[in-house]
Design a protein around this nucleic acid. Structure first.
Lengths: 150, 150
DNA sequence: CCACCTTTCCCCACAATTACCCACCTGCGG
DNA sequence: CCGCAGGTGGGTAATTGTGGGGAAAGGTGG
């Protein structure tokens, strides 16, 4: 499921974050009501619950004694929470995720091919700035983008 | 059974540790009430009792005279204790495990694909710090994560 | 075998957090 | 000018987490 668009909101003192109306509709179209959010890349990844379930299946295959991958799982699965938007369309972001993503006041929510992402406005500016400045000068990245054939 | 989420608690002077409410519910859904906890990777692994039973079956296959694997078993099986949450949802962590995992005050409990883990906050920070800082710079780990296709 | 000390179990009570309401404000279209 | 949809703020009740007391169980030494 693809999500499109960029939205700017605020997080309130209780840790509630509004989900863009189009994204909520998108979820309901598929008969779902829950998202799973987790931490990665300095922001919060949000997947429709069904899609997350498929990810979990893949993650379950990792051995309990695989040092490296378990370190990754601790972070990725440990960050994951299922959330259901309230009557106003907001979700409650747990303190650990709020802290990780540095969510304090102004947020940016951006659509992505199989999920959407919640950023603090500050980190968002950095991330985008990084691409605009360095992105075009990184030959390897340019090659990878080209190979997408778009 | 997958456990999701990261929770921060404290261990009290009696050695009692709160189990996250969602994890307790998860256990009850399967008609169980006990966990088995043991020591590994600098933290405490906690499995639903039924899942631990399956692990024990596999461990039973190890020969009594297999030096190397028996060394592992002494540690892994020797550390294992069955625990049942009290009315408030807490378990009592035996002194030996408390000492092994360095549990003194602040704890982090993290969900994992087939278990959850109890960490001292300090060790948790080290473990996660290692991933956040070096994780993305470790080509082998990056390759392994990519190969999960998530 | 008994007495004592320590640890564990089972309550109760309070504090903090979360879930679930309802109300308002603002911008846009009819 | 009104109605509606989308976004923000707050109150209250229920749930969850933390601390502590006292009884029961277990272990140790005389």
């Amino acid at each position: 499921m693809i999500f499109r668009g960029r939205f700017e909101y605020t997080i309130d003192p209780k840790g509630r974050v509004n989900i863009p109306a189009p994204f909520r509709e998108r979820l309901q179209e598929t008969g779902q009501e829950a998202f799973v959010i987790t931490n990665y890349s300095g922001c919060i990844y949000a997947y429709p619950a069904d899609d997350w379930a498929r990810i979990e299946e893949k993650l379950s295959a990792v051995s309990s004694v695989d040092r490296k991958l378990n370190t990754f799982l601790r972070f990725f699965v440990g960050g994951a929470v299922e959330v259901v938007p309230d009557k106003q369309g907001r979700i409650l972001v747990p303190p650990s995720l709020r802290e990780y993503a540095g969510l304090e006041k102004d947020l940016v929510i951006t659509g992505m091919p199989n999920r959407f992402e919640i950023w603090s406005r500050e980190k968002w500016m950095e991330e985008i700035g990084r691409f605009e400045k360095e992105g075009f000068e990184d030959p390897e990245l340019e090659r990878e983008i080209k190979s997408l054939r778009i």
